[in-house]
Nucleic acid binder design. Structure first.
Length: 258
DNA sequence: AACCTGTACAACCGCCTAGGA
DNA sequence: ATCCTAGGCGGTTGTACAGGT
């Protein structure tokens, strides 16, 4: 049996993308869009699988992406949305213009999760984590796992448990209200990729040919092209006041965070 | 200066789902 | 109703880099 690979993997390149590959992909997508991701690498002259191209485009090359750290407001929003939606990163990303699910997921796992734990908040339930009463004690994660029923099955069960835990704190009434805002963001940039790429951020006029005079395409300050994004370029330090507000009912010590 | 460890993030993998034949 | 394909999603891994010893 077994599952068919998404594409012929033989002879395909893996690993980090080179600037040249980026240029080829961007040039192709901007001029042609994508009718079918499977054909994109062939037509663009890339030794990559379509899936890889799609990922590279949506997570890294899309011109409407913001770069840099999440702002204070964005981080707060991520926490809010995670509380409602659980690990539905794409849904969360749909509410944050210019951010990708991958980016948010990474930020959550590397930054926010840690901060919440430090604050004594269980990042899954968004409630005070009992086991964190002794921050220097045994690994709170281990204790948490021990408290939970066995999750050796992984997969769907695992997810359901987490969702249940997350939603038990607050019922998931997020009926695709994301749809409205999501449409403005178009994180999946599916069939409208070419359109959204050609007109990133509505009335932004991007001089695309200039892009290819840059060595590594990601050296480009996309934000510079996207004046409509309206943030500070993503370089602002992630503040915490809003988090303190958010969890004020939990009653954690602000000093712990600092 | 060299090595070790931890962190951040890009990329991959496998599963799920929607839509068409 | 069933099968197949492509796209999408979330979890996990790999790697480069920074900081510490």
């Amino acid at each position: 049996m077994g599952r068919q690979p998404c594409c012929e993997k033989v002879g395909l390149k893996k690993g980090p993308w080179t600037a040249e590959e980026d240029q080829k992909l961007v040039a192709f997508l901007l001029s042609n869009g994508h009718c079918c991701w499977r054909l994109v690498p062939k037509l663009a002259g890339l030794l990559r699988c379509g899936k890889s191209c799609r990922l590279r485009w949506t997570n890294y090359l899309r011109p409407d992406l913001k770069r840099g750290l999440l702002s204070e407001e964005e981080e707060k929003l991520v926490i809010d949305l995670h509380e409602q939606l659980g690990n539905r990163w794409s849904k969360i990303a749909a509410r944050l213009p210019g951010r990708t699910d991958n980016e948010i997921k990474n930020h959550w796992n590397t930054h926010i999760k840690k901060k919440l734990r430090k604050m004594g908040i269980d990042p899954v339930t968004h409630r005070p984590a009992v086991s964190l009463a002794q921050p220097d004690g045994p690994d709170p994660l281990k204790q948490q796992r021990q408290q939970e029923p066995s999750v050796s099955g992984a997969g769907a069960d695992d997810k359901e448990e987490e969702e249940e835990a997350a939603t038990s704190a607050q019922p998931p009434q997020v009926v695709d209200s994301s749809a409205s805002s999501a449409s403005a963001v178009s994180p999946s940039c599916s069939s409208s990729a070419s359109a959204s790429a050609a007109t990133p951020g509505a009335d932004v006029d991007v001089d695309w040919p200039d892009l290819f005079e840059v060595d590594g395409i990601m050296d480009i300050d996309w934000a510079g092209f996207l004046s409509a994004s309206g943030d500070d370029g993503g370089c602002s330090a992630v503040g915490t006041d809003m988090l303190f507000d958010h969890y004020s009912d939990v009653g954690f010590d602000q000093q712990v965070w600092m």
